[in-house]
């Protein structure tokens, strides 16, 4: 095989590989929460003692886009889009945590009952009047 042919073939392989990697990179799906380590575990009861005003939730801003675990009581389950949002709150009902479940958790929704205590892991997105977590998975029930 001539040097020229090896050179051309190497360029083709290289172009193909980089194209493949680029395609995979731009089409990467949002990572599932199962694969993400949580940076902190909180409980709705402790949060309700710490949070007096909505603005106090600002102190959790450094957890934005990170996985956190929260233990709380199920207040409400709402269906929306192609999934469910579980609303957790504390014993004194002072603070709400909205957890939009990851679609692969839909099958577990039938096991959840209002008033149950559960632990959820999800990606913290910030707050409006409640803490908001997306891509949540049920870690303990």
């Amino acid at each position: 095989m001539s040097k020229k042919l090896i050179y051309i073939l190497s360029i083709i392989v290289l172009l193909f590989l980089s194209g493949f990697l680029f395609f995979n990179f731009i089409n990467q799906k949002v990572q599932t929460t199962q694969k993400t380590e949580s940076v902190i575990t909180l409980s709705a009861d402790n949060l309700s003692k710490e949070i007096i005003l909505i603005e106090d939730l600002k102190r959790f801003d450094h957890f934005i886009e990170k996985a956190i675990q929260i233990k709380g009581i199920i207040k409400k389950i709402e269906s929306n889009g192609n999934g469910y949002t579980v609303v957790l709150n504390s014993e004194n009902k002072k603070i709400n945590i909205l957890c939009k479940l990851q679609v692969d958790q839909n099958e577990k929704i039938g096991d959840l009952i209002i008033g149950d205590t559960i632990t959820i892991k999800g990606i913290y997105k910030g707050y409006l009047i409640d803490m908001i977590l997306l891509n949540c998975i049920i870690t303990k029930h």
């Binding site: 990179f25 731009i26 089409n27 990467q28 799906k29 949002v30 990572q31 934005i64 886009e65 929306n80 889009g81 999934g83 949002t85 909205l98 939009k100 997105k125 910030g126 707050y127 409006l128 009047i129 908001i132 997306l134």
Partner: peptide, 29 residues
């Protein structure tokens, strides 16, 4: 799916608050 909105019947007003990071996309990029 986590948009907050208040509808005030007496004042005939509506207020909406959207957390931008709560928009979900299929692709992470």
């Amino acid at each position: 799916n986590q948009v907050l909105s208040l509808l005030d019947i007496k004042k005939e007003k509506i207020a909406v608050n959207i957390l931008m990071r709560a928009f979900e996309f299929e692709k992470s990029l």
